[in-house]
């Protein structure tokens, strides 16, 4: 009986120790690569080597002085903005169609729209590359163009927007939409003047998520870009294969900072909307 008593009193202690140990492990596991990169970006040396002896902003200066790297950053931003526009427009419209209308083959079309999201990037990149490899439109090679990368990235971004907006549209008050139509507003006007303002948080989130997905993606981009249009992650991948320098850490930090800026924007917008409702 005393045995059972000891076990009873010991169990919570063991449990607490295990919980603490696991918490430390998971925090360390997730933060290690992030902190290593952040620290390394302020290194002064040419080689990646711990401990860091001299700290400086040398590699940040080097990054912005190199036309190859700034151009890659510019390409990344252009492609990400394009993806955000394409994915959000098509995703929002399709989600609205699914929410408001009934039509044949609905569940099949749902699967079709969601399917690219489950496909590995390697496969999507390869497929688009071989199908549009030699296609020219108005004398411009489609292959290697930024537009093709935007659409390829939309294959992942659009289903996500679609999923997010489908859930968002479900939360709106249908009576408001019906009221607008009863007052004689045509569907298009109802959509733009009544529905869109109601789901602005969902749309802003969609735009920024699509932007982030495109900004970070590099397997499809690797298959679809050439030297002039390569994105920052592609350039990072290619130079990691030859030799890693702290410049790569700087590039990582810039990418991550952009992503966290987007996240902050979503949060700020969300808080603004909440305040509006509260008022």
């Amino acid at each position: 009986m005393s045995d059972a008593l000891i076990r009873r009193s010991l169990e919570p202690t063991i449990f607490r120790v295990l919980t603490l140990a696991f918490s430390v492990f998971i925090v360390a596991y997730i933060l290690i690569p992030i902190l290593v990169t952040l620290v390394m970006s302020f290194n002064d040396a040419t080689q990646i080597r711990f401990p860091i002896k001299v700290w400086s902003l040398k590699w940040y200066g080097d990054f912005f002085a190199s036309p190859q790297w700034t151009e890659a950053l510019f390409n990344s931003f252009t492609i990400a903005i394009g993806t955000a526009l394409i994915a959000t427009t098509s995703g929002v419209l399709a989600a609205w169609a699914f929410e408001r209308y009934d039509f044949p083959l609905k569940s099949l079309l749902y699967v079709l729209i969601m399917m690219p999201l489950f496909m590995p990037g390697v496969v999507l990149g390869l497929g688009v590359a071989i199908a549009f490899g030699g296609v020219e439109i108005a004398g411009v090679d489609l292959y290697g163009s930024r537009g093709l990368v935007m659409i390829a990235h939309s294959l992942w971004a659009m289903p996500l927007v679609f999923m997010l907006m489908e859930a968002t549209f479900r939360t709106i008050d249908n009576r408001v939409v019906e009221a607008a139509q009863d007052l004689g507003a045509p569907p298009v006007r109802t959509f733009f003047e009544v529905v869109i303002p109601m789901v602005s948080t969902g749309i802003i989130s969609s735009v920024l998520f699509a932007f982030v997905i495109s900004l970070n993606e590099f397997v499809m981009a690797l298959f679809l870009t050439d030297r002039d249009t390569q994105t920052l992650p592609v350039l990072m991948w290619l130079s990691l294969r030859s030799a890693g320098t702290p410049r790569l850490a700087v590039a990582s930090v810039i990418l991550a900072c952009t992503v966290f800026l987007c996240l902050t924007l979503i949060m700020l917008w969300y808080i603004r909307q909440l305040r509006k409702v509260a008022r």
Partner: peptide, 10 residues
Amino acid sequence: LISEIAIIFG
């Protein structure tokens, strides 16, 4: 939210 390439590099 962090690019796979940045994680690899980390």
